[in-house]
Amino acid sequence: MSTTPTRHRNETGIVVDPALPTIVITREFEAPPERVFRAHTDPDLVAQWLGPRGLTMTIDRYDARTDGSYRYVHADEEGNEYAFHGVFHEVRPAERIVQTFTYEGMPDSVSLETAVFEDLGGRTRLTATSLLDSLESRDGMIASGAETGIREGYERLDAVLDGTQAAEEHRRIAAGFTARVRGAEAGRWDDPAPCEGWVARDVVRHLVEWFPGFLKTGAGIELPEGPSVDDDPVAAWQVHNDAVQSLLDDPATAGRTLSHPQTGDLPLAQAIDRFYTSDVFMHTWDLARATGQDEHLDPAKCAALLAGMLPMDEVLRGSGHYGPRVEVPESADVQTRLLAFTGRTP
């Protein structure tokens, strides 16, 4: 037996002790413990990542609480089924899960599994320890291809976490835009907006009109339509925003792809985060300025967007989405520099 070293932070490390019937797995994830824990306890999410590629998972029960139990069945393309069950001995939110694990094809072999979620400041280190009843059982598990299944499962978990991260980011960013929509005085919806030729309601119109078409063309998904922005911009935005959030919150979104000639194929949640949520963030400032509300944007988000845009200056400028860069002092705050880069006058 051997030890698999971790060469970089997101590689799965698997340690097999030659003297003890244990398997110790370490893996870091680009998500806080609360979300990694949820992906281990929400059956809708568990079904999307647990186990190797090529298997489908059917959950009979998954009661992830202290004294709860679980049973699920993996099936391959030939129809072969592999069932597993166990009991949760301790479930401590975002910290620790202790459970038993039994493969029903070997009912006399039971392992005790402990998963510990360590907070790395917005990231998570997961340490999962399996204690089997004998060295023979442990070696048999490894020989059956467990290492491949573990690694592929965690790669699939990365994709699930990308989706839940996109959902939370949209919830946060859209809340800021929603606050400006609801805070706009009725008489200001036709006031000029920073975008040339637009008034305040056109900022909302842009978001509720371009994205549904992008989504339908690239992913075959149709969002429900709300009232006209001309009749009721607040309701138009709310219907649209609720639909986008519901899509991101849907566990099935993690398995969907968006295809576009200019971007190729991307996981749907990643595409929404990259192209749409960022657009909502930028237009929050436009609506705030048009309607005389708070123009402050999250500095960390501003910095992340600016860092991603700077290397693409020529491409972005040539796309026609941004006007000429506005000159501001190098000492200006990051929001000012981001707005100026996109052609807005801070």
Rank of each mutant, 00 (worst) to 15 (best):
residue 280 V to P: 03
residue 252 A to M: 10
residue 293 Q to I: 06
residue 310 L to S: 04
residue 277 T to M: 02
residue 258 L to K: 03
residue 304 A to R: 08
residue 259 S to N: 15
residue 294 D to M: 11
residue 307 A to I: 15
residue 304 A to S: 12
residue 274 R to C: 01
residue 291 T to P: 08
residue 283 H to K: 08
residue 279 D to S: 07
residue 253 T to F: 05
residue 255 G to R: 06
residue 293 Q to C: 01
residue 256 R to S: 11
residue 303 A to W: 04
residue 267 P to H: 11
residue 302 C to Y: 03
residue 287 L to T: 03
residue 309 M to K: 06
residue 301 K to C: 03
residue 278 S to Y: 15
residue 273 D to T: 05
residue 312 M to Y: 13
residue 276 Y to N: 08
residue 263 T to R: 11
residue 280 V to Y: 02
residue 296 H to V: 15
residue 268 L to S: 02
residue 304 A to M: 06
residue 278 S to K: 12
residue 279 D to V: 14
residue 286 D to F: 14
residue 266 L to D: 00
residue 261 P to F: 10
residue 252 A to K: 09
residue 259 S to H: 14
residue 289 R to D: 02
residue 267 P to Y: 06
residue 287 L to D: 01
residue 308 G to D: 05
residue 308 G to S: 11
residue 305 L to M: 12
residue 307 A to D: 15
residue 301 K to Y: 02
residue 252 A to S: 06
residue 266 L to Q: 08
residue 301 K to E: 00
residue 257 T to E: 04
residue 264 G to K: 09
residue 278 S to M: 13
residue 293 Q to P: 09
residue 300 A to G: 11
residue 276 Y to R: 03
residue 293 Q to T: 05
residue 276 Y to A: 04
residue 299 P to F: 06
residue 264 G to R: 12
residue 282 M to V: 15
residue 309 M to R: 10
residue 288 A to W: 11
residue 252 A to G: 09
residue 282 M to G: 12
residue 307 A to G: 14
residue 293 Q to E: 03
residue 310 L to Y: 10
residue 268 L to T: 03
residue 271 A to W: 00
